[in-house]
Each structure stands twice: as C-alpha cells, then as structure tokens.
Amino acid sequence: MGIKRKKIEIEIDERLCKGCDICVILCSEKVFTISKKINSNGYYVPIPSNIENCNGCLICELICPELAVILEKTELDELVAL
C-alpha cells in the first residue's frame, strides 16, 4: 500500500504579480524568496526557489490577490510507502 508521489510545479505570472509578498511570508515551508528582479510594472516578483519543500497546501494560490501564483500538482506513477 502507498500513496502516489506528487510532483508540484509553481510559477508566478510576472504580468499580474504586484510584489505584495503575502505568499513569501505566509508560506509555512518558506518556498518563496524575495527577488531583486523587477517586472515590467516595477514590482519585485518573488521566486519559488525551494519547490522541493512544498507540501501542496495551496494557501499561496488561494490567497494571492492578483491570481499570479500558479501551482500545478501532477500525480506520478511511483508510490510512496506509508
């Protein structure tokens, strides 16, 4: 018995992000870091630098006021032992 391992991909839409850093601070696993790169609107867009820590709780996607966080979960075939 086991559950399927999930692969998680996170991307931030640079067109929409306004750099409010809510995702950076509220993420319990510290997945995001504040970047030094600005987007075309002049905001500092965070980078999902520690994706391997992500537990897929979805708070970043749900709380983002600009719908800029895109989190995709895909189920892999390999099983994780319980």
Binding site: K18, L62, I63, P65, E66
Partner: peptide, 10 residues
C-alpha cells in the same frame, strides 16, 4: 498592493 478584494476575487 496587498488588498483583500483580490483574494475574494481569486
């Protein structure tokens, strides 16, 4: 930036 209305929209 950081307004809650966007979260409600989301």
């Amino acid at each position: 930036v950081g307004c809650g209305c966007g979260t409600v929209l989301n």
